[in-house]
Computed example of a mutant assay.
Amino acid sequence: MLAARPEEHRRLLHAFLNAASAGDARTLVELLADDAVMVADGGTEGRVVGGIRNLPRPLHGAARITAFVVAATARRGIALQVEEHELNGQPAIVFWTEDRRPFAALLLAVADGKIQRIFFHADADRLRHLGPGITHG
């Protein structure tokens, strides 16, 4: 696998976010590797948003991930602000509540021009270090 340059990583991150926000299943499938894996970590208590609970185990395959993402984004439960930041040395998206508390972080593993892995971290305990003082990367 050939790892993506930061510009390609950023392009795929924003394309994924835009397609997910629009419920664009066709584009999501095109962005994902056929054997892509999605991991959603809502912490020990889990997280429920819009009536959908975080995934209890990794989700495998572009079609299954797309179906989950489209269903989850169609049932938005709260208004969130979206900002790009650098996390773990890569472009990432941080979702903030209206009172500037970190709600979730979206990170991708990208190679060969496709999204290979999606990591959606929504564990409030693990996100505390982001705090309202995080700076853009």
Rank of each mutant, 00 (worst) to 15 (best):
I52A: 01
F68K: 08
G133R: 10
I78S: 08
V29S: 03
D34Y: 06
R128I: 09
A3N: 06
P102C: 00
A63P: 00
A67Q: 09
L12P: 04
E8S: 11
D34T: 15
W96C: 05
L55G: 07
G46W: 12
W96L: 05
G42L: 12
P102G: 01
G113Y: 04
A25R: 14
D125Q: 13
T27G: 00
S21N: 15
P56T: 06
I115K: 06
H14A: 09
G50S: 03
H14W: 15
A72T: 08
R128Q: 12
R101N: 15
F68C: 04
L28K: 08
M38E: 11
L130A: 07
R53W: 08
E30G: 15
N54Y: 13
L59Y: 06
A4R: 03
R11I: 13
A79K: 12
G131E: 05
T44V: 14
A15R: 05
G131R: 05
T27F: 00
R64I: 00
G43D: 02
V49Y: 14
Q116D: 15
A3L: 09
A33Y: 11
T73L: 02
G131V: 02
I118H: 05
P58L: 09
R47Y: 02
E83N: 11
R100N: 09
N88D: 14
F119Q: 02
D99K: 15
D99N: 15
L28N: 04
R75H: 05
G131D: 15
T66D: 02
R101C: 01
A92S: 13
P6K: 08
E98P: 04
D24F: 01
T73G: 01
A4Q: 02
M38L: 15
K114P: 00
P56V: 00
I52P: 00
F119K: 02
L13H: 04
H129F: 03
F103H: 13
G61M: 14
A122N: 10
D112K: 09
